[in-house]
Nucleic acid binder design. Sequence first.
DNA 1: TTGCAAAATTGATAAATATCAATTCCCTGA
DNA 2: TCAGGGAATTGATATTTATCAATTTTGCAA
Lengths: 236, 236
Amino acid sequence: MSLAGLFPIDKWNFSTQFILNNLPPEEYAALSANMTELQLKKGEVLFRQGTVPQGLFFIIRGKVKKYQVNRNGKEQIIYVANTGELLGYHAILSNERYPDSAAALEESTIGLIPKEDFLQTLENSGSLSRMLLKSLSHEFTVLVNSISVFAQRSVKERLAIALIVLREKFKDPASQEPVVIDVSRNDLANMVGSGIENVVRFLKEFKTAGMLDTKGRKIIIRDVGKLIELSGYGSL
Amino acid sequence: MSLAGLFPIDKWNFSTQFILNNLPPEEYAALSANMTELQLKKGEVLFRQGTVPQGLFFIIRGKVKKYQVNRNGKEQIIYVANTGELLGYHAILSNERYPDSAAALEESTIGLIPKEDFLQTLENSGSLSRMLLKSLSHEFTVLVNSISVFAQRSVKERLAIALIVLREKFKDPASQEPVVIDVSRNDLANMVGSGIENVVRFLKEFKTAGMLDTKGRKIIIRDVGKLIELSGYGSL
DNA sequence: TTGCAAAATTGATAAATATCAATTCCCTGA
DNA sequence: TCAGGGAATTGATATTTATCAATTTTGCAA
């Protein structure tokens, strides 16, 4: 089922997957000349908030959560980045430390581009800077949306939204099967901004209502339409 | 009282005030050649979410709230922009419609720069694009912080934070007097993401605790230190 | 396989927040 | 200056969400 016209999925996804692909060949070459690969196991941290950025990351394959940890150790997931997306450019561009941390949600392959190569290419390239401006501006839309949702919507609605968004991320384009979302209850709760228990209870409710099934920690989405109704984006 | 070392105020402010000032003279000239001025009365809308951007706005003097209105008409204030800040560039750069609306919180003077002049200058200028990349990346930090706070902190903490942030915005550098914050309870509630009644009750609590006084709708901050304690950023 | 530790689930209850209703308190324009 | 109306405040209560305490289930590693 496509979400087109039913749910504003573009307001929940960044758009950096398009950057590397659309770069003129010579700029791509400059950028990737010294790119090294790096394998992350599930749960491994790519970078940690408060540290100084050393490079730009490219998700060759996998899923990476971006999150903040507050003083009480509570984790808030801001975004889940997928294959093809870039990570870690904000801190380089703003010349600040990482505002958030990044860790693999599943086994992932990451390309690491040295900070200098990134900045150098940026100097010499109109396209890269144009595309970054565009992506960063789009991210603004995404984050502003998140703020409204966190500030105003109920936990149940936020869970529904999280499931719709995750479903897109876990979708296998080659398959017609219902999408299987594979994240821990803990990560799900940290995306939704609530406790594990609440999330579990609402999941059960959704299950009873026929929107999804669970199989261990895996969540199989059966009826996105109903989830969209619940999310508050119904009859958009 | 300065917040340095006590509260991360930079994580709550965008940084576009620096852009126009630091632009090379010829680029500034190109940008402002066709700038027209526009006077906004308190409450007047500068642009509305979902509409197509026509230009870039510069706050010559005043305060402008950026907010989203959801389906139920509930308003969420995302940010309060102050004198010197730029507005409305995201939608132009991402080639999307405005993700949020903007309205004057007080009588304001706005400079309007045609979209074409902005894009043209951007084409020809390294500085402008560099500074925008930096500002946009910093905004990411600000918004990510907001998300964590909305998702995890209590209304009381959020109110304390809102007051600390507003105090900075309403500060008169020429005066040593305690800062007077002049916003409606409604706007304050929409910043905090709660109802007016809750905000009023917590304000009363803060007042009783000696952190502030009220005078009609005006809020006079007496003890930021205590507010910082309450905000959850105490002993940062 | 099996046993175990971690993760998920369930239940009960406390705490926070939202909502509805009713006053009271300002501003502002006549 | 004063009356009217919107804004702010207060009170009472419903609803949502968080938290604590047990179980039960799962996924691994031996």
